[in-house]
Design a binder for these strands. Structure first.
Length: 492
RNA sequence: CGGGGCGUAGCGCAGUCCGGUUAGCGUACCUGCUUUGGGAGCAGGGGGUCGCAGGUUCGAAUCCUGCCGCCCCGACCA
């Protein structure tokens, strides 16, 4: 393995960083904390976008676009909201540069100072609600169901490719409703859209839940989330859906005439997932040989590598491969025939493993003679020779489905094997220390206890699972009564 | 912003402690020949402001001072 990456065992975070770079997903840029998403990485993101976008539209949402800049005054309209984001905002203060008098380059022109500074959006609630005020007059204008695909900037202190970057790509849905119930339903519906997407397309099982008040989105009444477990035993928040109550409607004075002739503030939601999902995808499935991509999101689902010595062999193989490729494409499969003669087969095998291509077919002179194909699976790293009969393309399609299911099952097994219930604080600390993973325990519901546990163990309450069963118990920290277990973990 | 580590060819590194030919190795790249069922072999070749700026010295990648950047661990966070 000349171009190997570090193993997960020896250094998980080095493995992650190297994998992201070596698999050509992304690389650090000249700007601190910002990354360049490379073509291969971006194709995966595009596949995620396409599916999510389809799901949003299917649930009645429409895309729109709001500006990158937010007037500073907007941000101070919702008090909690400012507190939540103030510390990590990039601010635009000037609009012009000029040549330095000493010829040393360009400098900011002090004469071009903005009257009101602009904030580069860390999220768009404020600009969007400011528009909604004008868009909504009557119950007939509701519900307003809008999504935007955008980039946002949060000036993070420490960044990691995909998991936390100063600028990231995401989608943010912002909706307004006539009733509280309708807004809550929307919040829950979008959480379910996220969970479905992550589980069915990314093949990553998630826990659906509610954030505790201290982990809630700034300005929300309730924050719903999905949490996924990574291979190193840490949790990753994969998506959030917020019920905003009437907070933003009040802050931005968004009122509507009700059917009954009254005047009321609308009820809001917002929900988002980001390029962080790429991080979850990478960490959930990949191994020491490289990426393992779920077929549903792989930019290349099947790669065909010819093995040949002579021109004659190559033409014979090409003829066969080209018709096979067409048949596979007719079944909706994305196929690449890598016929480059600048790289040897072994090199290509390693390369496509690194890039996580789910299925690799190799065809050489031996296969031509026997009418066979060597089929290799990325998820299990196994190979078998298969007859190239009429059913072969369907078999490959079935195999892709099997791989999708297999990696989901594998991730689910990992999650289940790394989930434990504990009843004492001693046990809690021991489990976190030794095993990591998801820990279900009783909590007294107070911010103080949550903060103490975080301080002492670095573990946070990831969520109060929606599926939590009613169960009498005592808080592992304070001993006070509790009626359900919450999910603790160390998180990204 | 605290603690630790690091900046030498595209990438990965040695050399720095103890200053001294023309700064070296692996890999990648280019050329040629032989190769091709798991990252080919041999031969030849190109590529360097040794992070930046000062200083010490006959002489600095190496010593001193200042600065910049990156990575890891914390505080903060999707």
């Amino acid at each position: 393995m000349g171009k190997g990456i570090p193993s997960r065992q020896e250094d998980y975070s080095a493995w992650y960083n190297e994998l992201v770079k070596k698999a050509d997903l992304a690389e650090p840029s000249a700007v601190r904390g910002c990354m360049v998403i490379k073509p291969y990485g971006f194709s995966i993101w595009e596949k995620m976008q396409a599916e999510l976008d389809r799901m949003f539209k299917e649930t009645g949402h429409t895309n729109a676009y709001f500006p990158l800049f937010i007037p500073k005054s907007y941000l101070s309209k919702e008090a909690q909201h400012v507190d939540g984001f103030a510390k990590e905002c990039a601010v635009v203060t000037h609009h012009r540069l000029k040549n330095a008098e000493d010829g040393s380059g360009v400098v900011v022109d002090p004469a071009a100072k903005l009257e009101e500074e602009l904030i580069v959006r860390p999220t768009s609630e404020t600009v969007i609600w400011n528009s909604y005020r004008n868009w909504i007059q009557s119950y007939r204008d509701l519900p307003l169901l809008i999504n935007q695909w955008a980039n946002v900037v949060r000036w993070e202190m420490r960044t990691r490719l995909f998991l936390r970057t100063a600028e990231f790509l995401w989608q943010e849905g912002h909706t307004a409703h006539a009733t509280e119930q309708e807004a809550v339903d929307e919040t829950e519906q979008m959480l379910e859209v996220y969970a479905t997407f992550v589980e069915q397309f990314m093949a990553v099982p998630v826990i659906r839940g509610l954030k505790t008040p201290s982990e809630r989105f700034a300005g929300a009444v309730e924050t719903y989330c999905i949490e996924a477990l990574m291979q190193d035993g840490k949790a990753l928040q994969a998506g959030t859906s917020h019920f905003l109550g009437q907070n933003f409607a009040k802050a931005f004075d968004v009122k509507f005439a009700t059917k009954e002739g009254g005047l009321d503030h609308v009820w809001g939601t917002s929900w988002g997932v980001s390029t962080r999902l790429m991080g979850a995808l990478i960490m959930a499935h990949s191994d020491d040989n490289g990426l393992v991509l779920p077929p549903k999101l792989a930019p290349i689902q099947v790669v065909i590598v010819p093995i040949f010595k002579t021109e004659e062999q190559f033409s014979a193989i090409s003829a066969k491969v080209n018709s096979l490729k067409t048949e596979l494409q007719h079944l909706g499969i994305t196929v690449k025939f890598d016929h480059r003669d600048t790289h040897k087969p072994g090199w290509k095998f390693a390369e496509y493993e690194l890039k996580g291509v789910p299925v690799r077919l190799a065809i050489g002179p031996r296969d031509l003679e026997n009418n066979t194909v060597e089929v290799a699976r990325r998820d299990t790293l196994t190979k078998q020779s298969m007859e190239m009969d009429d059913f072969f393309p369907q078999k490959i399609r079935d195999l892709l489905e099997e791989i999708q299911t297999n990696i989901y099952d594998r991730a689910l097994k990992l999650q289940q094997e790394n989930s434990q219930k504990v009843d004492t604080y001693e046990e809690f600390k021991r489990v976190l220390e030794q095993d990591g993973g998801f820990v279900y325990a009783h909590w007294d519901g107070t911010d103080e206890t949550e903060a103490k546990i975080k301080e002492e163990t670095k573990a946070t309450i990831r969520c109060i699972p929606l599926s939590a069963e009613e169960e009498e118990g005592k808080c592992i920290y304070s001993g006070k009564p509790s009626n359900k277990r919450v999910l603790f973990a160390k998180a990204y």
